[in-house]
Amino acid sequence: MDATDFALVTACQAGLPLKPRPYHAIAEQLGLAPEDVMARINAMLESGVIRRIGVVPNHYALGYTANGMTVWDVVDEKVDELGEQIGQLSFVSHCYRRPRRPPLWPYNLFAMVHAKTRAQAQAYADQIAAILGEACRQSDILYSSRMLKKTGLRIGD
């Protein structure tokens, strides 16, 4: 990524302009050719700098009020192989291996599940538990009871 790419990221991080020619509007703002802007955005999408382009819904507004962070204590030898399988479940939005913080926190696998009811979230957790089998020693679900802050990406100093 070069300085022009970073300028593009800064220009887009609050979102795309809601104008008929949004990429042209950004190009004009930055003094670039629209073709250059579109080519760079395409390249960032290809390389994974941009995950995707589109709408980002608020889970709560769509009725997904049971947003559970499921956490699992999985034996170290199996956690990566099993984590790949958990990430592929349609209802999992994020899946990470993270460090344990014993004794307070024995869990090393995190998978966010999104459901409209806690019963449904529990059913999803049960599906994960079935995949993990005996490799999982203990688990928990932490529900978010309040969204206290959510901002888009911010870069800069």
Partner: peptide, 21 residues
């Protein structure tokens, strides 16, 4: 939908890590 808060964002979703973040 943005104004109503049904959408939190519209546009490119960046991967901060891929930019050195």
């Amino acid at each position: 939908l943005l104004k109503a808060g049904v959408l939190t964002r519209f546009g490119p979703l960046f991967n901060a890590e891929r930019m050195g973040g």
